[in-house]
């Protein structure tokens, strides 16, 4: 292959926007809003798994809590015809993520699993990704957080603790994905089995409203769930192409 050919080929390849289909895995999640009760178990599970700091009351007052996964509440109507709709909101791992393009130092980018990753120690803290994220799921470390001894003994050794000035967000429990891949490799399997890896929130969900898996595998639970006619993406009109898909809440008549 001549040098010129190599250049033209590289040019063509790198000018192609839709390279995400080539990824080994394409992790995705569905959340059935008809099953979600908004109990918050996922929120605490996430906090436990990912070493989210205990920020203290003061930080909450200032609006500086760090919750990679939060439950949003939307009331509808007035008493007595009032309804509460809840929706768990975490990083949507958009394939066309607005946050990724804006980082000047490439601290956030799309990895080979279709995940939107945040590289903590590359982050310089411009916080622009948080501005560009329409889902408001990026959380900034406004100061260093400490764990009162011996609460620090609970910290998950597979997850780094973030320092001040660094942005952080949901990783789809990338450490568990990593572990599952390692296990698959140890077992001589080429791929991770469906259901073998579950983020902490999915694992703990008391009403099993969340399903996680590989979208590239058409047989996976998540792929089937994605085909559900109730599926929709939050703020889909922004073309973020998110990997978290919600299933509509059903409004039944009595």
């Amino acid at each position: 292959m001549s040098f010129l050919d190599r250049i033209t080929e590289g040019w063509r390849k790198n000018r192609k926007p839709g390279y995400y289909e080539d990824f080994d895995y394409h992790w995705a999640m569905t959340i059935d809003l008809d099953q979600c009760s908004g109990c918050g178990a996922c929120v605490t599970a996430c906090q436990a798994e990912n070493n989210l700091p205990i920020v203290g009351e003061d930080a909450f007052t200032k609006g500086r809590e760090i919750k990679w996964l939060r439950i949003e509440h939307y009331w509808e109507g007035e008493y007595p015809d009032v309804k509460l709709n809840v929706i768990p909101m975490m990083c949507q791992h958009c394939d066309s993520a607005p946050c990724e393009t804006v980082c000047p130092v490439s601290a956030t980018y799309h990895n080979q699993d279709g995940l939107n990753t945040q590289i903590y120690n590359r982050c310089i803290g411009t916080r622009s990704c948080a501005v560009y994220c329409p889902y408001e799921v990026r959380y900034f470390n406004y100061n260093d957080h400490t764990w009162e001894s011996p609460l620090d003994q609970q910290l998950n050794p597979d997850v780094s603790v973030r320092e001040k000035g660094v942005m952080e967000k949901c990783t789809f429990c990338i450490q568990r994905i990593r572990q599952a891949k390692d296990n698959a490799k140890d077992d001589g399997r080429r791929r991770v089995r469906d259901g073998e890896v579950q983020p902490a929130c999915v694992q703990t969900c008391p009403s099993k409203a969340m399903v996680f898996g590989d979208r590239n595998d058409p047989q996976s639970q998540v792929s089937q769930s994605l085909n559900d006619p109730r599926s929709y993406k939050v703020l889909d009109e922004l073309n973020t192409n998110s990997s978290v898909v919600y299933l509509k809440k059903v409004e039944a008549e009595g």
């Binding site: 040019w11 390849k13 790198n14 000018r15 393009t101 980082c103 980018y109 192409n241």
Partner: peptide, 11 residues
Amino acid sequence: YAHPTGGRPII
């Protein structure tokens, strides 16, 4: 340093 971001082409 091919870092895919935002679903855009590298170039």
